[in-house]
Nucleic acid binder design. Structure first.
Lengths: 219, 219
DNA sequence: CATTAATAACTGACCAGCCAGTTATTTACA
DNA sequence: TGTAAATAACTGGCTGGTCAGTTATTAATG
C-alpha cells in the first residue's frame, strides 16, 4: 500500500506490452490453483496482474484462451526435457528411467509446475479442447518414448517381459497420486513430503518388487 | 417422446417423496460427469430427474448439497467393502492385497462409481468441504488399513522392508492413472481397456519388480 | 377437503466480454 | 533539442445473459 509511494506522482500505468502476457498468465495460474477456473473472474486476474480487465482482453481473446496459454507455456518445457532424458539411446534403460522419474518428480513437486496438470484435470470436462491439446502436446509425445524405452529394456535383457504400455501406468501413477494426495487432500506421509523419499521408495519397489527374496511365489 | 402416451390423460406429476432424492442424485451424477459441477444447472438436474427445479430444493438445500449427497451415497459402500477385504488378518498379505486391488480396480472401472472420485477431484478446490468429507470418510479410513497390511507383510517376511506409507502410493497410483488416462484423455492401451490386464500387469510389476533376474543390480 | 408434493414464474446477484474514452510513449518536424 | 501530432497501451463502466435460490400457486392423494 504505502510502498506505492515509490512513485508518488508517477504515471497511472506503464506500457509494457512485452511483459503483459506473462504477467497475466502468472496471475491466472495462482488464481486457478486457489479457486479454480470457473470461480476466478477475469477481473481478479487483471487486478492481481496489476492491470485492468480490458488489458487482459488485449492479449487473450477469451478467458479460456488464458487457460490454454497457461498450459502451453508451463508444460511444454517439462515435456521436452523429459523426452530429452528418455531419448538417451544407450546404457541400462533402468538407469535412464530412474533419472527421468527423478526429474519428473522434482518438476511435479514444484507447485508452479505441478499445479498445471491439476488445473487441466479439473477443467478438462467442461473444456475438451484443453484435454485434446494436453494430450497432443504432452501425453502423445512422452508416453511412446517411455514405452519404447521399456521395450528396449526387455529386448536387451534388463527387464522382465512385462507389457510396456501398461507398465507406463505403474511408473508414473505413484508420482501423480503422491502429488494429488498431498496437494489436494493434504495427506502427507509422516516422514515429510520430500519427493526424494517417495521416488527412492518407488524406484525400489518398481525395480525390485515388493516380495521378499525368501517368500513363496504368488500367482 | 411418443412413449409418453403410456399415460395419456394421466396426472401431470406423481407424489413420490420416497424416491425423489435418489432420482435427483442419479440425474446429477450423470450431468456432473458429462459437464462438471459448475456447468450443470440445477434446472438440468431437475429436468433429467423428471421434476421441476423447485422440487430439487425440496430435498436438497443447495446445489452443493446435491454433490455432497452424491459422494456420500456412492462412495461409502466402496470404501467399506475395500476395508472389509483388507481386514482379513491371516494369510499371505500379498494375496489379500492382490484381491483388494482387483476389487478396487473393478469398482473404479465401473463408470458410475469411478465417476465420483473424478468429480470430487475436479470440485475439491472450489469446495473444500467436499475434500474434507472425502478425506475423512474414504481416505483416512482406507489408507491406514492398507499401511498396516504392508507392515504385517514386512514383519512376517512376505515383503521387503519398504516404507509402507510411501508404498501405498505405488499400489493405488497405477490404478488411478489408468482410469484417468482412459476416461479423461481417451488414452487406451492397444490391448483394449479391460482393467483385468492392467491389474495383472500391475501386480506382476508390483510384487516381482521390473528388473530381470539375470540383470545387474542398480542402486 | 386437508395436507403437502410439486410446479412455474420470479428475483437478484453475478460476470464475461465490449467499447468509448484516457493516458503514456513515440515520431515528425521546427 | 523542444513540442505537437500520432499511435499504441490501457482503463473502467456498461450490458446482456445466465442461473441459484425463492415464493405464490396448483394439483395429487388419503
Amino acid at each position: 500500500m504505502v510502498s506505492e509511494r515509490a512513485k508518488p506522482s508517477g504515471p497511472k500505468f506503464r506500457r509494457r506490452s512485452e511483459a503483459r502476457p506473462d504477467e497475466v498468465l502468472d496471475a491466472a495460474l495462482e488464481l486457478f490453483v486457489e479457486k479454480g477456473f470457473a470461480a476466478t473472474r477475469v477481473e481478479d486476474i487483471a487486478t492481481r496482474a496489476g492491470v485492468s480487465k480490458g488489458t487482459v482482453y488485449l492479449y487473450f481473446p477469451s478467458k479460456e484462451a488464458v487457460l490454454e496459454g497457461l498450459v502451453r507455456r508451463g508444460v511444454l518445457p517439462v515435456a521436452n526435457s523429459v523426452i530429452e532424458q528418455f531419448a538417451k539411446v544407450s546404457g541400462d534403460p533402468r538407469l535412464i528411467l530412474a533419472g527421468a522419474i527423478r526429474m519428473l518428480g522434482n518438476r511435479l513437486s514444484d507447485p508452479m509446475i505441478g499445479a498445471i496438470p491439476k488445473v487441466v484435470l479439473r477443467e478438462v470436462v467442461s473444456f475438451p479442447q484443453l484435454a485434446e491439446m494436453y494430450r497432443r502436446e504432452v501425453l502423445d509425445r512422452t508416453i511412446p518414448v517411455l514405452v519404447s524405452l521399456i521395450e528396449r529394456g526387455i529386448a536387451e535383457g534388463y527387464m522382465r517381459p512385462v507389457d510396456p504400455e501398461l507398465t507406463v501406468r505403474s511408473i508414473v501413477g505413484p508420482l501423480v497420486i503422491h502429488v494429488v494426495l498431498a496437494q489436494v487432500f493434504g495427506i502427507v506421509p509422516k516422514g515429510g513430503m520430500e519427493i526424494e523419499a517417495l521416488i527412492d521408495n518407488h524406484l525400489s519397489v518398481l525395480f525390485g518388487g515388493l516380495s521378499a527374496p525368501g517368500a513363496p511365489d504368488i500367482g
